[in-house]
């Protein structure tokens, strides 16, 4: 019996060396180790053995089974691996083909700039104030120390609707409206919005554009605070190395008045074509609120003081993104707009 087992082992191991595909392996397992297989057949004769022989032969039978199973398992693993490799090969895709893009729109570059500026000032404790675009002569000019015969009020320069109503030429009327509404309380606002001037459109002029103005009124507001505020703004908006330069100027609603330059964003102050080799770019008008304006807004200029500043969002957007023609901002060519749909 032992011999028969040994023969079985030899024959099985030999047969297994021939196996090249999984089904054949399965067949051999059945043939040798299955319930009706050859090993079972041999072991049926165990009953005829003596009690001494039985454990010995049992041991031999187990060894034979183990040896055959080991080979089968090894082959099974091999086939499994081959199978997996084949499937992976078949499932291979071309990863260089393009993916499906998520639809992504762009906030208009002007709005993007306005949002950024709003966020900076809101972070500094300002509120955002708004007012009508069609405005009364009183709020747009008179209450801003621009009396009726002032040169800056020429019919040629403004879009009038009637003698007393016009498209606002600046967002400053929002400042006046805020002053009158605040009843002498301290003010810290910025006013972004559309304004209109009777300019012929060209690369740097548009009859419609955006302004952002700021107004701070409180007791003891100083011109040095204006400098500090604008420096902080410039550094947050354009980078921490930015410097500002205030130059004396004139506006009817501020005294003293200053034009404000920032370090050229293109050359970092080295001098280039954009800054006309000065290292500076003019971006803001500002000054201490004129006592007349405070008075008309309901604030006693002996008790309160304030500063105001204003900038063109269009100009900031053009500088920030290197846009060479203001008309691009209002043409809405999607090939232009799409460029702003990212951080």
């Amino acid at each position: 019996m032992k011999n028969r087992l040994e023969q079985l082992k030899a024959s099985a191991l030999s047969a297994l060396t021939e196996v090249i595909e999984p089904q054949h392996l399965q067949d051999l397992r059945v043939k040798y180790l299955g319930k009706k297989g050859e090993l079972t057949e041999i072991l049926r004769g165990m009953g005829a053995l003596s009690a001494e022989e039985r454990p010995v032969i049992g041991q031999v039978a187990n060894d034979v089974r183990g040896a055959i199973e080991e080979v089968i398992e090894r082959l099974q693993d091999k086939f499994q691996q081959e199978e997996t490799a084949k499937r992976l090969q078949a499932e291979t895709i071309d990863v260089t083909l393009p993916g499906k893009p998520m639809a992504r729109g762009a906030v208009h570059p002007l709005q993007k700039v306005i949002t950024e500026i709003e966020d900076i000032f809101v972070g500094m404790g300002y509120r955002v104030a708004e007012g009508p675009e069609v405005e009364s002569d009183y709020f747009n000019f008179e209450a801003l120390n621009l009396p009726k015969n002032h040169p800056a009020r020429d019919m040629q320069d403004s879009f009038y609707v009637t003698d007393e109503i016009l498209m606002r030429t600046q967002t400053s009327p929002v400042q006046v409206r805020t002053m009158q509404a605040m009843n002498g309380e301290p003010i810290k606002i910025i006013c972004p919005g559309k304004v209109y001037r009777r300019d012929d459109d060209d690369a740097t002029h548009s009859f419609q554009f955006y302004q952002i103005e700021g107004l701070v009124i409180d007791k003891n507001i100083r011109m040095s605070d204006l400098k500090g505020t604008l420096l902080q703004f410039a550094q947050q908006m354009f980078g921490k190395d930015m410097q500002i330069l205030l130059r004396p100027s004139f506006f009817p609603f501020t005294e003293p008045s200053a034009e404000v330059d920032v370090t050229c964003v293109h050359c970092g102050g080295q001098g280039c074509r954009i800054c006309k080799h000065t290292g500076w770019l003019e971006i803001l008008g500002s000054g201490m609120v004129h006592p007349e304006v405070l008075r008309m807004g309901g604030y006693d200029p002996e008790e309160y003081s304030g500063f105001a500043f204003g900038m063109g969002a269009d100009r900031i957007a053009m500088l920030k993104y290197g846009i060479d023609d203001i008309r691009h901002l209002y043409t809405n060519d999607l090939r232009f707009l799409q460029q702003f749909g990212r951080m």
Binding site: G105, A106, V107, H108, Q111, Y330
Partner: peptide, 10 residues
Amino acid sequence: GIHEVISYSF
């Protein structure tokens, strides 16, 4: 996927 535009008031 919708783009913002700004056009003229007139």
